[in-house]
Design a protein around this nucleic acid. Structure first.
Lengths: 206, 206
DNA sequence: ATTCCGAGTAGACAGTGTCTACCCAGGCTT
DNA sequence: AAGCCTGGGTAGACACTGTCTACTCGGAAT
């Protein structure tokens, strides 16, 4: 029986689950170490056995968010037979939808102190995502430096998620959903929407 | 003598200055209410006379950051005779430079809890900036919806500042400065760099 | 049967933001 | 001129936080 491995991380995964629920329901400021322990039904010192510091517990919760997001992306992409542009549009929509419906988790995922400490292993999580983006961009725009365009596009998505989530863009654009902004970012980085085949690159020497 | 107005806000502005220095020197986590009061040489209850809550003091400090950034932008723009694209490039460079050399302040300025509470009056600060951006974008790209493009471009700049500041892009792009990314974002939203005169817009009637 | 050890408890400590009672000098009224 | 009032600051309390440390206890291994 799996009693060993089961009990090894029983409280550990329970803490993470409680944290995920808590940040989803009440936001990132509710994620105090003691509150998580309380809701998990253990004393405030118990988490220390598995997470030496509060930050490491938060990192584990944030990583769950990244895994969740990556899985949603994978599901939406499917077998990956759609055009690169369509896949990028799908990924962008999935990401923005996730960011706006899981605001607390999204905020947690991109906290500076989490990202800057490598305890999260976050770079390992984000690198394949960035590689996928770079590949798609490279296929959609073979004329450009795919890493630069993919980086700028990723930053664009992130910025839209942030500015939109705190309402800085709703007032100014007057729109009631984020899709036009996503389309604008896509058009900007991939060129205006070609119907099927990509337009011939100008000034591109093969 | 201006004793009345002087003494009225003497401690108030002192607290803000201490906060600005502190966040610049030691980062946003050093901005505890009590630490600011300590460095200002007053008791921990004194700030409450001017800032009913810690958040309002932080907001006042952040607003100083916005004013500083806006003034740098205005200086860099000068009389505004340069081309819209050049002005946008200048503003982008000023913003990214500010964000990367004043990381603590930049982080404070865009904290969710500050932006979401209107105590800051931040929207009043950011609206004219966005209006300027929209105007410049509208002149640089008369064919497009200026609000959408300006919003996406602003989000792009913000995202680049964030992702770059925590190192998610250095590793992947391999570059050692942020200028290529800025150029990529500019090219994306304003079209590839025309030498002097803007290239004729395609499919533009009128 | 005894020893040992992992896992969790409980208390202490320094630090935080907020609240409240107090205090005191300066200007006002009377 | 005497007394009051009030703005501006002090100081202590309170609940809460993250971390550290001493401890307990049940079950497994020797």
């Amino acid at each position: 029986m799996a009693s060993a491995s089961e009990r090894d991380g029983r409280l550990r995964s329970r803490l993470i689950e409680v944290g995920v629920d808590l940040v989803t329901a009440e936001g990132v400021q509710a994620l105090s170490l003691r509150e998580i322990a309380r809701r998990a039904g253990v004393s405030h010192g118990a988490p220390r056995r598995y997470f030496p510091t509060h930050l490491e517990l938060l990192s584990a919760i944030a990583r769950r968010g990244f895994e969740d997001l990556a899985s949603r992306g994978a599901v939406a992409i499917g077998d990956g037979t759609a055009s690169p542009r369509e896949q990028l549009a799908t990924l962008g929509r999935v990401y923005l939808d996730f960011a706006l419906t899981h605001r607390g988790m999204h905020e947690l995922m991109f906290r500076h102190d989490l990202l800057e400490s490598n305890t999260l292993g976050l770079r390992d999580t984000s690198l394949p995502i960035f590689a996928l983006l770079t590949d798609l961009v490279g296929r959609a725009r073979p004329d450009a430096d795919a890493r630069l365009v993919a980086g700028s596009f990723l930053a664009n998505l992130y910025g839209i998620a942030q500015l939109w989530s705190w309402g800085s863009l709703q007032l100014t654009t007057g729109a009631d959903d984020v899709v036009p902004l996503l389309r604008t970012a896509l058009d900007a980085h991939l060129g205006p929407e070609g119907p099927e085949e990509p337009e011939e690159p100008e000034g591109y020497e093969g």
